[in-house]
Amino acid sequence: MKTYFLPQHELPSFVSTLLQTTRVIGPVAKKHKFVFARLASADELRLDYDVTILPPKKAIFPQTQPLLKFSPEGYEDVGTPQPQILFGVHFYDVKALDMLDEFFTDGHADRRYLDNREATTIVASSIQHINERAFFASVGADVKPRGHDAFLTAIEGGYVYEILTDKGEALIKHGSFRAATGDEVSSAYAANAEALDKCPQHIYHSTREIGRRVRAAFGRDEVWDELAEKCFSCGTCNTTCPTCYCFDVQDKWNLDQASGVRERTWDGCLLDDFARVSLGEGATDNFREKAAQRFRHRVMRKTSYLNEKLGGPACVGCGRCAIGCVPDIADPVRIINRIMEG
């Protein structure tokens, strides 16, 4: 498909026009950090963000989402979503959404996810600032992002807009785009290559080698106890992860105390009660009782368990877990290097 160019000063009016008809979710500042939020105006958009606190998956798989409505008579479906544009998604988060697409389609297609996904147009964007904990260049490097509809790259004087789908193409009528020149396309290519070159953290092992060695370390309790010694089981590494998709399901009554919703909320395998079952009379059994077991489960899931299904690790190197973990023990780069050193 075609590649276009949008001059720098035309971006605000492009975004403003989109906003008039569609819900647009993009990166905005929150104190000295960034979050994806519904844009109220084009000037809130911060394409110079490094990374957001939560990944953009929340726009498609929200923190809390109704699955069904209920009444004493039974259940009924919830409505279908309105179209939305997810604007300014970095390539690593597109890769993560590709994985969620796979998880929620595999076996039983989850319409609660897929309806939102299909109603979303994703405009990816180049990385202008790189977080110091990012390692996206060296994890699953051979897995390319595929789920976006267009890719916006900042170059000198404006943006190169590469179209990948009809949904991506449908947006250009809202802005003053012109065909990109060969030089502009080359500049965009160089800008995205530079982001990979400048990525600060590295894992120097192949996905296959990591998967094999980490898996083989399953029984080395002393390593897991050491790695998880300072773990608070707070689940921040899960909650901020773009590829985590576990959830809890709860029923809530409305104020009328008759109708209500069955809704899912993000859950995390690091949380104490994640694998706990009731045995009756207050007794419980926990299939992963120790923090170290839960810590290990996450590492296994990111590096090994899902590789076959995904063709790569269930990690995209965004660095959010490393940034968010207060005792700083969740960084996959350090965990993998620790295990690989023996």
Binding site: S233, C234, G235, T236, G268, D272
Partner: peptide, 8 residues
Amino acid sequence: YPVCVECK
């Protein structure tokens, strides 16, 4: 679970 969950 800890308050961190709700902050995040």
